[in-house]
Amino acid sequence: MSLLSYLRLAAAYIKLNWRMQMEYKSAFASQFLAMVLNNSTWLAFWLIFFDRFPVVRGFGQADVVTLWAIASAGFGLSAACCFNLHNLAALIARGQLDTWMLYPRALVPHLALGKLSPTAMGDLAFGYGAYLLLVKPDLEHFLMYVFLTVAVAVLFTGFNLMRGSLAFFLGQAEVLSEQWFFSMITFSTYPSSLFDGWVKLVLFTLIPAGFVAGLPPEALKQLNWNMALLTGLGALAVLGFGSLCFALGLRSYQSGNLMEMRN
């Protein structure tokens, strides 16, 4: 199948998921606003922190706003389109991939695109809102920001495939997958200049938060497209590795006789 065909599939899923959310407008609005407020609270913490200590390891208020704008928009974009991957370990452990295997084309796109998260939409809106309103970028910075948020979204999608695929090999891997995710999110929202040595190596491999909190804010600060492209390459590598883990794991997937309805 061509790339165009898959893009059409993605557009159809996004449209369908959006319509489903609009059936419960007030629930959607409350979750969307809550996530915007949640992220604003975190940003408020950092603003309080940097108000007291203006620069820590080269990071100041503007840098932390940029960091949060990239991390939340990138994560939001990934989860808004591919929310099912967020719970992949649970889906595998409960034999709930069966439903998605009945569709034509590859399994991952159907599975990933099958669900939209309202809170993720809040993350996405917060990221773009914070960047436009607080950083006030010029056109070139904004274009780079858009590129970086897409790259970070690709990275999170690959990371979710990677951690979720653990369930193929370990069976019950929900707790481990969750802790891995929390570690990734936590490292992604703190200035990466705080870490050095072997931790830096971990942040570009096992917990690839360096491609969220390390390279992207620096690329925007210096308007360095090489760094931005490196982020994109890192994201593609994580997506590739995640897809490989999923493909290898799928060979050992065992179905059950459970009757399932997709939701």
């Binding site: 409350s30 979750q31 606003l33 996530m35 407020l37 609270t41």
Partner: peptide, 14 residues
């Protein structure tokens, strides 16, 4: 309320 997850998130973050 139709959904309390938003309120929960706000309470915990505060």
């Amino acid at each position: 309320l139709e959904d309390t997850s938003g309120l929960y998130l706000i309470y915990t973050r505060l």
